[in-house]
Amino acid sequence: MADDRDLLPSEQPVQLLDESGRPVENPTLPFPDNGRLLAAYTALVVGRRVNDQAGALVRQGRLAVYPSSHGQEACQVGASLVLGENDWLFPTYRDTVAVVTRGVDPVEVLTLLKGDWHAGYDPYEHRVAPQATPLATQLLHAVGVAHAARLRGEDTVVMALCGDGATSEGDFHEALNFAAVLKAPVVFFVQNNEYAISVPLARQTAAPSLAHKGIGYGVNGERVDGNDTAAVLAVLDAAVAAARSGAGPQLVEAHTYRMQAHTNADDDTRYRDSDEVGPWVARDPLTRLEALLKRKRVLTKARRDEITERAEAVAAAMREGISRDEDPHPSELFAHVYAEPTPQLREQAAVLADELSRESD
């Protein structure tokens, strides 16, 4: 039987880059190669632009709400880039950048936040589950998908995202327990951004870290600097490989910070001040990775301009797609409620159709 201490996370979050973007020696994890880091940087730039553009669309009244992941993009990008084509991503409402990095059209991703009646994208096309608004409910679904894939003999790993607030929910604990008992190939990736809306981490848990919670279920835990893109990639690579090899579920806690308000409807000045937010600016994952790539002479001015243009093209497509006015037909209220409509739905649809026909006469 494995030593319980083998399940415990590192005493300090794993780091491969310091705050200035200089490599930190780590003998246990391979440093991602230049091509991978450049791809991650590209996704970071696009992701930051997606966050900023979505915020602007909220202010213009084109989106009902947007929970920004500004400052957390390394977690978002890393969670998607470590997955294979046959793997699944289970995101939360704040994981738009992760979903976009997985290949889903940003306009489709934001359809839900625009207030449409559907989630906006086909989950099976890119193997991305619908973004979950209730905390932690998607984690049990992720375990079910992983277990089903294992029973079918498929080489599938499921990346299940959540925040620190979700670890206080019962579904989080049930999901870890089921996954451990079933040895389901799931990576539980907790983005600890210090706040569950307005509740600070210290009022959510007394554990040494959120990654320590894994040992109670026999799940291996690890901690990573969530603003260090290189470390996020390396730690999640190892977690995905372990889950895929049959080692069972893995729990990774990323230490990051929510730089902006919970959503546009939140006033974060009521529960934190600028002195707390300020130091995290120096830990920005985008500037840290950019500094490294410039130092390695991988990121030239021409390449940086090309990446910026790509991000601007994504933002332009978002503006056009989200700003396009739709004219939904009232009958769509009944179109996709059940595969086989109930008698009550048929009756209600008939009443509506009759009223619409009378108005047109």
Rank of each mutant, 00 (worst) to 15 (best):
T42C: 02
V281H: 10
D327H: 14
S245V: 05
R36L: 05
V109S: 10
I307M: 07
L63T: 00
L293Y: 10
K114A: 12
P32S: 14
L151P: 00
R49I: 00
D237M: 15
A234N: 05
S168V: 05
G71W: 04
S20Q: 15
R48K: 01
R358Y: 11
R283L: 13
A64L: 12
A119M: 14
G170P: 10
V157A: 04
W280V: 12
A254L: 03
T308A: 12
D305M: 11
V109A: 12
L17K: 08
S69R: 01
R304K: 05
V143D: 02
T167G: 14
L345K: 04
F90A: 15
P200W: 00
R48Q: 01
N51A: 00
D275N: 15
H141I: 02
G35W: 12
A339H: 12
G35T: 07
L286A: 13
Q131W: 01
Q250V: 03
V181R: 04
V145H: 11
D273R: 03
V337A: 03
E125G: 05
G35R: 12
I197D: 01
F189W: 06
E320D: 06
Q76A: 02
L251R: 02
D284W: 07
T287V: 14
A39T: 02
T269W: 14
P185Y: 01
R150F: 00
G153Q: 06
E340H: 13
A238N: 09
L299V: 11
G246K: 05
Y338S: 03
S323E: 15
K213S: 11
V100N: 09
P279A: 11
E73K: 06
L89S: 04
L201C: 01
N34F: 06
Q76P: 02
V104P: 12
